[in-house]
Nucleic acid binder design. Structure first.
Lengths: 197, 197, 197, 197
DNA sequence: TATGAATGAGGGTTCATTCAT
DNA sequence: AATGAATGAACCCTCATTCAT
């Protein structure tokens, strides 16, 4: 029974998270009521509280899930065999993930979570890790690039890592604010800046 | 009487906005109650509604004020005499403004407004302009730089402008998330990237 | 489940309406707070808003219910077999309904609704129908009476209908203003006026 | 000085009452705020409180003024020389007063006051007198008519008086609810009923 | 496991009234 | 006599959460 139950539990949780993301990305965390999530998920209020202790728990789960997904992307790029290309690949992988389905919603959640983190300690913790870890990974990559003289050595590797990450973050913000934005041109510019520095 | 009244009105509005920013930056827009603002401002609920129609109006005013201030910074850099240095100066002016008093609070508000904009149409309008205008200004600067062969001509000037703006935006985000961040190193990296591309 | 739920819903709505009428008839619509209705009904604020969208919706429901009841009375009299007696019966039925339980409260609500209607468009709509329909029914009866030469033919049937209705309305007003009023004598006078014209 | 002051006081009070009636007849007593009256009157909140102790005092003054005016109408008819025609004249005077300017507003106030009286003891007192006195006057007239065998003697004179008053009251109600109403036809019907009983 | 009616504290806002000027 | 900014209690309503079924 535990296995069936576990699967069922996961399915229900996903169902709720999915509904919550739909609501949150449209109305924001605080304008979304539990009743909205209830309606969107097709479950009952009681049912939702069987799987999550509170609305905040749902938000935290979403934050944590997003963080996990990004970590995965980073890991994939980092472990690519050709170390001298990892940074280039990372850029590609990251920006390509922005073209997937559901992604607009995901990015909207991301930006909302930045705001939420600033007044919600437990979300802060998660978002903070979601920023610190890429910096750590990127710093390692940058250091490697510097060793290979692919990047200037007089700059702090963390600073470079932060600037690269900023190019992702700023892109995400600009992307959710304006769908017209030309993604390919943006990527080209990022590649150029990284490769010609 | 109009002059005194006008001054008084401005003073009161500022008093309220100041209190609201303090509350919002600590608790977020939606966890801050009007009572919180009342307590922080030292006024009464009725008094606040004498100057603002609603809580939302306060948020909108904050957004608009922030937008106005950023526009000013951009304008200052844009009109600097030495056109070939405008971009460099812009970067300096922008990052230096981050070292002013009140600024942490201001940046926190900025990030929260990004999140708010995504589910609040009238805040969106303001925030959107606050992004579009810098892009416009930067695009002009970049075009000028390209003419002077200070930046590669094969890249879309808007894309470059967006990447530069992203370096600001991402920095703001990283700054509010981690006060330890080494601002000077970050600035150096940005300068390098812009000047050596 | 729908049937039980429906019955339950009706019961709760009645419970709330009953409480509201008690409050409204004592303190008026606007001096009655939702808290008053909450206290009188024994429910919670939230529960009330489960069944009515707003305080106004409660008032409208009361208006509509009263209208429906009066329509019923009119219909009963109108369909009495002996057409030549319908008007006489109508008068009796109407005045007798004034002796029922709850009726003082009902009449108080009626008079308050007249006042409310004058500055509340949706209540106006209902009250207006509650006046127009009796006039229509009475006009038909009067026309029939005129054909049978039981009422003078040189008078406008609608005018006569209106005068008869006025005798009801004025009675209601005087009744709620003074419980001492001798109902039987009033009825006798009305009968006399109608039958000897 | 007292004379000028007195006149001034009266003028200001009238100004306020006039403004209040305009507001009340449009929005009702309770939806009209003191600010509404302030705006309509062109005075300041403080000024209004120099002349009236409270909003309720304004309402009571309006009620009392209306009562006084109706008393005057009744007195005029009652003291007409030709006693045998007094009732007929009363009817004419009353209905004709309904064609004067401002009257729609006055009647609206009247109906709203009926409602208000039911939950406002001091307004009740005034409205109650405004009903009792006409009944007293009419009862006297009816008694005189009965002596002159112009009305049936087997009916209670007060009951007849009440029915006549009801014809006025019901008319007022129908009049404020429907401006289309044909006043002349209504008057004819009332005359007929009174004269042919 | 699941329901959904019910709770009630707390939300944003209004407005009759006051009082320093 | 007059102003009008300020007050603050009270208003209507919402919504995260619970619990009997």
């Amino acid at each position: 029974m535990p296995k069936v139950s576990r699967q069922h539990q996961e399915a229900r949780k996903n169902q709720i998270i999915e509904a919550a993301i739909t609501c949150f990305s449209q109305k924001g965390f605080h304008r979304t009521s539990m009743q909205d999530i209830v309606a969107e998920s097709g479950l009952s209020p009681g049912a939702i509280y069987l799987y999550f202790d509170s609305k905040e728990e749902i938000i935290k789960t979403i934050a944590a899930t997003r963080h996990a997904k990004e970590k995965e992307i980073m890991a994939k790029a980092f472990h690519s065999q050709n170390a001298g290309k990892a940074l280039t690949q990372l850029v590609d992988i990251f920006f390509n993930s922005l073209l997937d389905t559901n992604t607009k919603q995901q990015r909207i959640m991301g930006v909302q979570l930045w705001g939420e983190a600033l007044s919600n300690p437990s979300v802060y913790e998660i978002v903070r890790h979601g920023i610190d870890e890429p910096i750590r990974v990127l710093t390692e990559l940058v250091t490697e690039y510097q060793k290979q003289k692919l990047l200037p050595q007089e700059l702090s590797p963390e600073a470079i890592a932060r600037v690269i990450l900023a190019q992702f973050q700023g892109f995400v913000l600009q992307f959710v604010m304006d769908e017209q934005l030309d993604i390919q041109e943006y990527i080209k510019a990022v590649h150029h800046l990284i490769n010609h520095s």
